[in-house]
Design a protein around this nucleic acid. Structure first.
Lengths: 195, 195
DNA sequence: GACTAATTAGCACATTTGTGCTACATTAAT
DNA sequence: ATTAATGTAGCACAAATGTGCTAATTAGTC
């Protein structure tokens, strides 16, 4: 069940602190921000949040609040039937928050802002953000990021006897065959912000 | 400059704690995990991390470590010229970590796992995750999620005199015109994990 | 209106935890 | 080899902080 009133207010304060990568609040911080003159009410509501599965409390540890995915992430829903409104969905398939975590890329990866329409056939549009997992090699057919000459391009990778072939996914553009390409890595995923 | 050795090790410990939505470490936690028998070395390395812009230290506050985007997010790069290897990029356009933050969706939004190929023309493929910003209305041409009958579909929205028209972006499928559709919201963005 | 459950106030206490300071060890440079 | 810079150890202290308990207040129910 969704928290209400002061309980909700306290949860919001906590989530806010975590989202800004800041230090979690102390009981006294929460009391102050929520307008209590004692830490009891805070602990009272924290217990409710813990019972509802939104947080976990660590005993005898300062700022010992742990946020559950339920509180921070966006729920991923599978099938919804018309009878049940969205509000009633209790068992989402999971939660998504960090892109890097979802895509399974490590610390040393990076993202590129795509320019141009050469990969629209693969569902990669102008302005999309592609995530690159660094690697020196690639398998045939994988989408990769590579440096050709002075610019970075995203293309589909193939190895031929004449060198590396980089194919666009748009009939407007022909393939590039070169031995000079420097492979940056393979595309692990895409994020697009609509309009 | 990238941190090395013990400094790097300490940063990794901190990032790990934050990524798991857990409580940030105390100086003594860090000393223990990094293998120090005193908090001095820890403070020594934390200062270096702070000078390098990876963290911020709050004075007189327990667990007062704040992580900068540089430490947690994936850098978004724009143009890279061949002369400079990726490692040397110092000024990325920004950092991306939380999808919801990047897309600008609030707490009450949700995500749907797309099934089918009816929107491939809009770059939305089978298995993609679409983020839905809840709203009861939509503008002509916006991509929306709606409930028709017993299932949820993602389509492009148009308002006609015969009711709501939901168009697929795939010549295989015709438009749906109905007065019974329940609009869930508009699609704020897409995330795709490759292969 | 009476009664019960839910919520908030107030406060003392023991740990936890950041801070300050001095001394020791290790590495790098000359 | 000497010297300086870098990195560690140890410890005392004051403040920050979770915990326990009792009483007062408010909201909900019959």
């Amino acid at each position: 069940m969704q928290p209400h009133g002061k309980t909700r207010e306290i949860l919001d304060i906590i989530v806010d602190r975590f989202k800004n990568h800041g230090t979690p609040p102390t009981l006294r911080d929460l009391a102050k921000e929520a307008g209590f003159s004692s830490t009891w009410p805070v602990r009272y509501h924290l217990n409710k949040l813990a019972e509802a599965g939104y947080i976990k409390m660590k005993k005898n540890i300062s700022r010992g609040i742990e946020l559950m995915d339920q509180a921070t992430g966006v729920p991923i829903l599978g099938n919804i039937s018309a009878g049940r409104p969205i509000e009633a969905i209790e068992n989402p398939e999971g939660y998504i928050d960090s892109v890097a975590d979802y895509l399974g890329v490590k610390n040393d990866s990076f993202a590129l802002k795509v320019k141009g329409d050469s990969m629209i056939g693969a569902g990669i549009f102008d302005g999309d953000i592609v995530f690159v997992r660094r690697q020196q090699t690639a398998d045939d057919g994988e989408i990769v990021a590579a440096i050709i000459g002075d610019e970075v391009t995203v293309k589909r990778f193939f190895l031929t006897d004449r060198g590396i072939e980089l194919r666009a996914e748009n009939p407007k553009y022909g393939p590039i065959i070169t031995k000079q390409a420097q492979l940056l890595g393979r595309i692990a995923g895409v994020v697009r912000k609509m309009r």
